[in-house]
Amino acid sequence: MNKPQNTPSKKLLAVFAHPDDESFICGGTLAKYASEQVDITLVSATRGEMGRRMGNPPYLNRETMAAAREIELRNACDSLGIRQLQFLDIRDKTVEFVDEDSLTSRIAAIIQEIDPDVVLTFHEKLGGHPDHCAIGKATTAAFEKTGQRGSLYFITFGDVMERPERYGYARKDVVKIDVHAHLDAKLAAFRDHRCQTEIDEWVWLPDQEAKARFGNYEYFLKADRAFTVLNQHDLFGRRIEI
């Protein structure tokens, strides 16, 4: 009798700028794939030490912020099922000023080491915050530099990509992930980022009321429009070249 072959785990690498990017923007998706035994690595460029929120009432300062936010991020990773966490040790609000070639090379080395099936990062123009755009630009360049076999996607905010045409994209460029079954984990991760969410009263309402503030879907843009995803509800969906 033949022994069953062990199926290699799918791997996802998320490269973001700050603690809480992973939870606030795509926590449902990360929790969904973690529940499906996807091996997830999160890279945070900074420790968020320049964040304007310091608790409610304030209990942090510039000296204590980085350590507190690191602890909060590690707790959020546990809530979402993220197995590995790395920091690039860049000062918050300075990612755009880091030498671009050096940053690209650092991220490329991580990509080569992990060999992920899916990479998530920010869009270099639609990221909003300068740190978001800078880490997205460097990650995109690193992905291209490595000739990576996997797929690169840009995270997006809320449900803005229900109408991607406003941003120069088509519906075929968007992957829409159903996260309704993973809102408990997403809410837990929100609450783990305590110093950033204590001021938001809705986060601390009874669970059902708080979860009602979340959408049931999270949206991702294909970085490479020259392929079609056969399943537009799965970041790991089989792809074909156009």
Rank of each mutant, 00 (worst) to 15 (best):
G127D: 02
I199A: 09
L126F: 11
Q86E: 13
E218C: 08
G127W: 04
L205A: 12
E209L: 10
D200Q: 09
A108N: 07
W204S: 00
R213T: 13
K211V: 08
F157E: 13
G128F: 02
L152N: 03
D178M: 04
G215R: 12
D78F: 12
R171W: 14
Q208T: 14
I199W: 12
L88T: 05
A189R: 00
D178I: 04
E113P: 05
H132K: 11
K137G: 09
L126P: 07
F97M: 14
I107K: 01
I110V: 09
T104N: 10
P164D: 02
F214A: 04
S79P: 07
A142N: 02
W204F: 09
Q148V: 05
K93L: 15
V175T: 11
R171G: 13
H129W: 05
T197F: 06
S105R: 12
F143I: 09
V119Y: 03
Q84R: 12
Q112P: 11
A212F: 06
Q112T: 12
Q208E: 15
I135T: 03
A134F: 02
V119H: 04
V203F: 00
G150V: 01
E201I: 06
F190W: 01
L187M: 07
E209I: 11
H180A: 13
D184P: 03
R83I: 03
V98R: 09
T104I: 08
L205V: 07
F143P: 04
W202P: 00
R194K: 12
R106M: 10
E198S: 00
H182V: 03
R83A: 10
G168W: 07
M161Y: 05
G150R: 00
Y217F: 15
Y169M: 05
D178E: 09
R194D: 01
T139W: 01
R191A: 06
L85W: 03
G128I: 06
K125C: 13
D78C: 13
C195Q: 08
T146M: 04
D117V: 02
F143G: 00
K93Y: 10
H132Q: 06
K137F: 12
F154T: 00
G150P: 00
V118T: 03
A76Q: 04
I90K: 09
I90D: 08
I177H: 08
K211D: 05
D200H: 08
G168T: 06
V174A: 04
C77M: 07
I90E: 08
R91Q: 15
G158I: 10
D89N: 15
I155G: 13
K93N: 15
A189I: 02
Q112S: 14
F154P: 04
I135L: 05
C133P: 05
P130H: 01
V160W: 14
V175P: 04
A170V: 07
D92M: 10
F154Y: 13
L205I: 06
M161K: 01
F214T: 05
R166F: 08
F97L: 14
R171A: 14
K211W: 03
L187P: 03
H123S: 08
E124Y: 13
D99F: 07
I82E: 00
D131S: 06
R191C: 01
